[in-house]
Design a protein around this nucleic acid. Sequence first.
DNA 1: CTGAAAGCGCTTACAG
DNA 2: CTGAAAGCGCTTACAG
Lengths: 340, 340
Amino acid sequence: MQKPIAIRDVAQAAGVSTATVSRYMNGKFHAMSADTRLRIESVIDAMGYKPNDVARTLRSTKSNTIAVIVSDILNPYSIAILQGIEEACAAFGYTIFVCNSRELPVKEKEFIEMMLAKRVDGFVINTTGGNDGLIASLAERTPVVLVGRKISQGAVQAITVNNAQGMALAVDHLRAQGCRSLALLSPPTTGISPRMERVEAFRAHAARVGADGIISEIQIIGRVQVEPVADALQHIMARRDPRQRLGIIATNGMLALAVLKAAKVLGYAIPADFLFIGFDDTEWASVSYPSLTVVAQPTYEVGAAAAKRLIAHLIKKEPQNGPDAIELPVKLIPRDSTLT
Amino acid sequence: MQKPIAIRDVAQAAGVSTATVSRYMNGKFHAMSADTRLRIESVIDAMGYKPNDVARTLRSTKSNTIAVIVSDILNPYSIAILQGIEEACAAFGYTIFVCNSRELPVKEKEFIEMMLAKRVDGFVINTTGGNDGLIASLAERTPVVLVGRKISQGAVQAITVNNAQGMALAVDHLRAQGCRSLALLSPPTTGISPRMERVEAFRAHAARVGADGIISEIQIIGRVQVEPVADALQHIMARRDPRQRLGIIATNGMLALAVLKAAKVLGYAIPADFLFIGFDDTEWASVSYPSLTVVAQPTYEVGAAAAKRLIAHLIKKEPQNGPDAIELPVKLIPRDSTLT
DNA sequence: CTGAAAGCGCTTACAG
DNA sequence: CTGAAAGCGCTTACAG
């Protein structure tokens, strides 16, 4: 591993000072004669000089690097967000560190500190919901944009989707399809804004329509796996009034997948035994059995918008202009799982 | 954004030199009195000192950072690999840069140079297949481990799967299910070793069994989207001998998904009109219609093995010990799409 | 056991 | 238009 060539080598070969080479590398051509500029250019080409970003960062306190902390990299939702972030960053010359907190606040905290030590220029966080205070204070000294999940304190920028609208669409669709009985399946909501919002919206909607005799219930699924979901399904089916058409909603894509698997295991037919709506328009939603009616979130756009917003701050060096929360719209895509 | 506290501040407060604080930070306690050690410890706790990794890296030429370049971050295959890499890295204190070359050799080259400038300690690459020379020479001066795809030159470490075995399993299964006519769908194979190996294995197998009258054909799909796949399917169906049971194989998960979608659009029933096997046991393979027989690859393990191998090099500083190619086994998971 | 000093590879006022 | 010099925050022989 021979030593890479440094700015000093270029300066020597071109017969100028390192300051001048540095100016060249930073595009400050206006303060430079055409002659030196050309000379430096050809030396660099010949030697294949690439500046050391680490040294640059140390000196300029600008790393062109962004930390992305996702709560669950296995979730297709996270991937879509990641893709949106990655592409926006690549377009502006930013590189991303990817950290997976696996829904563990402790890991999230560790990653934040590690990334701070690496002097990233900013953060995009899909938070576990367990570090609100830390993130709020982080945002006071470093640019931070939250994706998908908001925190309860501080003025931190966040790009989310309209979860209340999404749930309203789902409930209305099920009612329009004749459901008089509704059930909601959600992972634990503690500290996780979209889950709280969705459950809350379901509750509000059920209450509103309670007058016309709709029965509704909410099941919290501790681990998103087939067995607990199967248990919840059985519970719901046992209590249902067979004379009323039942509609079930799962608040995210992984949960929806588990419901399909559990229904298969238990021998329930969808939509014959119950209508079903999931969140997240995953790539497989149209080929599952049955194909899945979903509330589609603009996940890629959420990621891209977050990255662009963060980069705008970094470039303009302007303070975070207020607690700007951007909420993107969602839409319902009807498929066979709610066909009657 | 107040200035973060530096090693100098700690040294001053503790009444020692920065050298001693540095020794403390690097765990060189043996060369330090218990007294100073405790003193430094309490000062660090009190001040909340976190060393600047950028400075450390500049000085020590060790960044604890690894570049991961995947060819398509949208592919669930890449995600599983990424997860394996991420977890192995996190366990050893390494952080990963994630780059998505989108199957473009030009982007891949750019990323390699960018990561080199950031002084990453090593690379894990799922290559586009268009930079074999560059990667071979890169591997001579920096630790590199390839995942999933090998290159044609140089002695670069690679973790792959046994593609010939996978294709053999698929072909044998289809034959056992009574198929006398076989078709293979693959994206363009140029430079991409697993694709070449799979197509080659299919060809070899078809030739071997040609004696007992099997008919086989290979269709290359330029873009993995529904329309081109539908065209290929129609072509295959038009030429098939209706008296012989037909089996179709798709060489990766995204292609398999496109086949299911295309079959749906065209009104073909699986397995009634043809049996079907995909590669990659994606999370949805068991809930698709029909549930999908697949050749499952140990994708997570490929990623984890690559990261561990790379880290072993980095820690031991031992030279890449030979062109070690590790090939993990695959297995066939039979489901409804090949049920007769 | 501990410190002074050099240096990693850059950038940036400052001076001319 | 250009260079000498200081300094970003660490680590590491070297000397004692």
